[in-house]
Design a binder for these strands. Structure first.
Length: 210
DNA sequence: TACCAGGAGAAAA
DNA sequence: TTTTCTCATGGT
């Protein structure tokens, strides 16, 4: 919690994952895979303008049409398949609401069964779209842990996730903030001061050197 | 010009 | 089982 409070004091409360609906968050979770968020925003704007930002539309949209709409997000061919897979899965299931009614373990397992939904994407959806207390592990988190000698950084995803969840209270808002702060820290930390007020490290905690 | 970004899955070793 | 490769746009 020391790291968390340090980053919170430095950057303040983050309003992360801007979206108008839980479904939009799920769409963004796929589109943001290894991609800058500004590119994802362009793709989401295209979907919105085409009135395609709904499960009903996306679950039946031809891949060729989807490819054109999400092109700005990069990896458009493979992401169109992944997004289509997720939407058809959700449609067959009965919607996000059904997923939300399941236990965390069941919902997570179900999401991971979708080709194109890996652990981080599944946990993004669980935490930010469904408000479930699941800690999201991303590249930044691994670098932060590694930099602070709290982990090697190449541990299995679930090993790190369970590690966070074991020492933190199962608080959805805390998990949302923590992950958002880690990302903010990676983007902005230490640019103006020799020692980062958030993590206590020297200038080297910029970018890859978190 | 080169590098990086809010990963995942397939292929190769 | 573990490592490497592929997917791609847009901003800095």
């Amino acid at each position: 919690m020391q790291l968390y409070h340090g980053m919170l004091g430095c950057y303040g409360k983050r309003e992360w994952w801007p979206a108008d609906s839980a479904f939009e968050i799920a769409v963004g979770a796929v589109l943001t895979q290894n991609t800058n968020w500004t590119n994802v925003e362009k793709a989401i704007a295209n979907l919105r303008q085409a009135k395609a930002l709904s499960l009903e539309v996306l679950s039946v949209m031809p891949l060729a049409s989807l490819v054109e709409l999400i092109r700005p997000s990069g990896y458009y061919n493979i992401k169109a398949k992944r997004l289509s897979n997720l939407c058809r899965f959700l449609s067959d299931l009965g919607g996000l609401e059904v997923l939300a009614a399941m236990s965390i373990a069941s919902a997570r397992s179900a999401l991971l069964s979708v080709n194109g939904v890996g652990p981080e994407t599944a946990d993004d959806i669980l935490l930010y779209a469904l408000d479930r207390p699941v800690f999201v592990i991303d590249t930044y988190t691994r670098r932060l842990l590694s930099r602070h000698a709290l982990a090697k950084g190449d541990e299995a995803y679930d090993e790190l996730r369970l590690g966070f969840e074991a020492v933190l209270p199962a608080d959805t808002e805390l998990f949302k903030q923590y992950h958002a702060l880690i990302v903010e820290h990676a983007k902005q930390a230490c640019r103006k001061k020799p020692v980062c007020e958030a993590c206590g490290l020297q200038q080297t905690c910029l970018k890859k050197m978190i």
